[in-house]
Design a protein around this nucleic acid. Structure first.
Length: 805
RNA sequence: GCCGCAGUGGUGGAAUGGCAGACACGAUGGACUCAAAAUCCAUUGCCUUCAAAAGCGUGCUGGUUCAAGUCCAGUCUGCGGCACCA
């Protein structure tokens, strides 16, 4: 008889047995009910597994293991998001091939994950850097291209001078490069773009029907930034030119006392003959374009601008001529690149008008517009506005819009903040973009049979100062014949961003070895959509949004049946160091998973990660807390010493504690309240210890409940005590309602809401019977002695509150 | 500036409007031991008190209610997201 719990020998044993039995491989029997659990596939960095990875992995492992026990055919896959800059930078620094580094890192990661006993289906591993995989990433890109959703454009992009690489908007954090922290500058480059804006509407509306945690929905909604308003046409006086503006406040049109256009606005060029201060405007535009986004945001306090001399616009409501200004606070990339300025009711316009002494005309009463802009839309009344005077803001918005439509001067309009996705990277370690540039034909896509376009081996991976990818230096790779006309062509040398491979990996898991298609429709129809996806909040406006976009697109082409890829999305909190700071090598507060498995074992490690606190919150690590979980598993193990191995039933007085625990654990696992689920099991074990014995039937239920959290130890005890077939083949226990209610319960007796006594009563006690206690029960009578009873409140099973004077 | 989330013991955290502090960590005392580790038992929100018993207590100020950590109004602090988006 094993008297000491030894995870070191138990854990490898079961990991081997599970692997040999193919225990966790998803079955290809499509008649079974399916469940698809997904975690974000890791980036196999050289640093190895972080304690943050197991948080998400264990949570979904618990769900996956529970689902299997509930009879589902479960897909819980794993793979490697292996393209990316850190690997490339490591390769450059150490003069090794990125492919080799990647291979080693993956092997290291896989070994570390296997130590933790996750029930991944390793037979379906995908690797984004495998040509058999990125062939299909390139194929999807070509589909986007064929459908006009991938295009090349000359435009200012976010450029990281340190990474020597363009970045997507989503990769710029506070004006700094998300990867290296360098200040991002604006650089005009010819870039591949994906038209994600074409899906702004679907990406927004799709959210409504999805079971995503609210903060994910909210963050995506804010990022997409839908805004409803009107586009209004202003005439330019004494010309045939018109200028359109977008506004959400059509009700304030009478108060528009000037206009502002962005420095890049095309009107300036078109009217250059009439403009008297062209030199000044050109100089201003040049200055503005030099500013990085960081500088532009830093300078928010003080607005700058130049009046366009020689042209005036006409306010369509007042028919008055108003000046037109240029300022870089108006962005060319949003709306029409021009605004009507209503200084009385917009903070920015107000600030600008004060600085340049422009007229401020109040059109919504309620504030003092000489002191500050009055922007409240809920209480003000329209004034100084002709036919709209006296209306509320909402009424006036509609009235003005109707008037504009009638006169052909405007229309209702929806704008989104979402921008198209910069898809080019001037780096080596990414998927080559399968396009050939031909002087005759322009960009020509590769034919499907020519995919994958392999990433060639190069001598040097260093990015170039010219802003071209290292691929540009390989002449015999770059110079090819045009597939369309046979003339000379050059390959595209930019590569795709890391987000490309991760935008569809969950589809490949369904059919990972398919050589003919990215995945067959039949298989996709069975497995998709993903039933439950857990991942980090940091991906909300990156991977999560991008992959929804690709999936919506593939749905439109008919390759996948459902529009949305993920039915449910949850998110885990970060694990911080013991000092409450973010874990990092430089802070010296990193916990190494391998060391931890060596000290307390994988089961205790898994359990602690689930027990340490609320799953969705950031929590500091506590080594003592982790040891506490090991101590609990020791206690469970030692229950074998008091086990009545002959008794298959449950002792009468244990029915209530056990069924309560089953209910609590089952429900809490589903709502990811793992900490309270584990607490319930600890309470149950404490009850066994208090009683001094446990029957085989009682132990059986405990092991079944605990097995998703601590699978190795539970399987071991299960085997030692001869329960039969392994736990992973067993059924998940169900509670029975009739055991949840106790015969007798202790209730609190309150006087004016303060607890003054306790009483054991029948749990079926009615309100009438409770009222009888007032005269019949000694305790209650003593408490109310000499007092006038005003009111009695009885809450069954809880308390009796007597209100007295 | 706007949007969201969170403030509960020494610590991590529990509490369908119904006995605040479950469960764990840590601490203190004790048992076992030559000793230590492990284990077991007891105590552990604050305060007054020999004790019995009472009072106070979920960031702060009010309100609703028989009853508020929970609901409402205001306010402070911390965290996260967005940010010249018209």
């Amino acid at each position: 008889m094993n008297t000491v719990y030894q995870p070191k020998s138990i854990e490898p044993k079961w990991q081997k047995l599970w692997e040999e039995a193919h225990a966790f491989e998803a079955k290809s029997d499509f008649s079974l009910p399916k469940y698809y659990c997904l975690i974000e596939f890791p980036y196999p960095s050289g640093a190895g597994l972080h304690v943050g990875h197991p948080r998400s992995n264990t949570a979904m492992d618990i769900i996956a293991r529970k689902r299997r026990m509930e009879g589902y055919n479960v897909l819980y896959p794993i793979g490697w998001d292996a393209f990316g800059l850190p690997t490339e930078n490591y390769a450059i620094a150490n003069h090794v091939a990125p492919a080799k580094v990647t291979r080693e890192n993956i092997d290291h990661f896989r070994r570390q994950l296997k130590l933790l006993g996750f029930s991944f289906d390793y037979s379906r591993e995908v690797n984004t850097t495998d040509p058999n995989y990125y062939k299909w990433t390139q194929w999807i890109f070509l589909k986007l291209y064929e459908n006009g959703l991938a295009y090349k454009a000359e435009m200012p992009i976010n450029w990281c001078p340190s990474c020597k690489c363009g970045l997507a908007n989503e990769e710029v954090v506070n004006g700094l490069c998300e990867r290296c922290g360098s200040e991002v500058i604006r650089k005009v480059k010819n870039q591949w773009m994906l038209r994600i804006t074409a899906y702004a509407h679907s990406l927004l509306n799709g959210l409504d029907s999805l079971d995503f945690i609210e903060r994910v929905k909210l963050q995506q909604r804010n990022w997409i930034g839908r805004s409803e308003g009107a586009e209004i046409c202003f005439d330019i006086a004494s010309t045939n030119e018109k200028m359109r503006v977008f506004t959400t406040r059509a009700d304030t049109l009478f108060g528009a006392t000037y206009m502002v256009v962005s420095p890049e606005h095309p009107l300036i060029g078109r009217l250059s003959d009439r403009i008297k201060n062209m030199d000044e405007l050109v100089a201003y535009a040049k200055e503005a374009s030099r500013k990085s986004d960081f500088e532009r945001t830093e300078l928010t306090k003080e607005k700058t601008g130049v009046e366009i001399k020689g042209i005036r616009a006409i306010n369509p409501a007042t028919a008055k001529e108003i000046p037109v200004w240029v300022s870089d606070y108006v962005l060319m990339s949003y709306g029409t690149g021009a605004i009507m300025a209503v200084p009385a009711h917009d903070g920015r316009d107000w600030e600008f008008a004060k600085k340049y002494d422009l007229p401020i005309v109040e059109v919504v009463a309620g504030g003092d517009v000489q002191q500050e802009a009055y922007t409240d839309v809920s209480t003000g009344t329209i004034v100084n506005s002709g036919f709209m005077t006296g209306m509320t803001v909402e009424e006036a918005k509609q009235a003005m819009l109707d008037k504009l439509v009638e006169k052909g001067l405007g229309e209702s309009k929806v704008n989104y903040k979402l921008r198209d996705w910069v898809f080019s990277r001037q780096r080596y370690w990414g998927e080559p973009i399968p396009i050939i540039h031909c002087e005759q034909c322009g960009p020509v896509p590769l034919k499907q049979e020519d995919l994958p376009l392999l990433l060639p081996s190069v001598e040097k991976y260093e990015p170039t100062d010219s802003g071209e990818s290292p691929l540009a230096a390989i002449e015999d790779w770059v110079n090819v014949t045009c597939p369309a006309c046979g003339g000379p062509g050059k390959r595209e040398t930019d590569t795709m961003p890391q987000w490309a491979g991760s935008s569809w990996y969950f589809l490949r898991y369904c059919d990972p070895h398919n050589q003919e298609q990215f995945a067959s429709k039949e298989v996709l129809d069975y497995w998709m959509p993903v039933d439950w996806y857990n991942g980090g909040m940091e991906h909300t406006t990156l991977h999560l949004l991008y992959s929804r976009f690709w999936h919506l697109f593939l749905h439109d082409l008919g390759y996948v049946s459902a529009p949305e890829p993920y039915l449910k999305r949850t998110s885990h909190g970060m694990i911080l160091g013991e000092n409450g700071e973010k874990m990092s090598k430089s802070r010296g507060n990193v916990i190494n998973p391998d060391d931890l498995v060596g000290e307390i074992g994988a089961d205790a490690f898994r359990m602690y990660e689930m027990f340490m606190g609320a799953f969705d919150q950031a929590i500091p690590w506590s080594m003592n807390g982790a040891r506490g979980c090991k101590r609990f598993l020791d206690r469970v193990w030692r229950l074998q010493g008091m086990l009545d191995n002959k008794c298959p039933t449950i002792t009468k007085d244990m029915l209530h504690p056990i069924h309560t625990a089953i209910k609590k654990v089952s429900e809490d696992f589903e709502s990811m309240k793992f900490n309270t689920a584990i607490a319930a099991m600890m309470t149950l074990v404490n009850t066994f210890y208090d009683k001094g014995s446990v029957t085989k039937g009682e132990m059986r239920l405990l092991l079944l409940m605990l097995s998703p959290v601590a699978p190795h130890m539970c399987e071991e005890i299960w085997q030692i005590q001869s329960y039969g077939e392994p736990i992973y083949l067993q059924k998940w226990p169900k509670h029975e309602d009739r055991y949840l209610v106790l015969q007798q319960v202790e209730i609190a007796v309150q006087i004016n809401g303060k607890v003054r006594g306790r009483l054991m009563v029948d749990s079926s006690l009615t309100t009438d019977e409770a009222n009888d206690l007032l005269s019949q029960n000694e305790t209650v009578r003593a408490l109310t002695e000499g007092k006038q009873i005003v009111k009695v409140v009885f809450v069954p099973g809880r308390l009796l509150n007597i209100v007295v004077k």
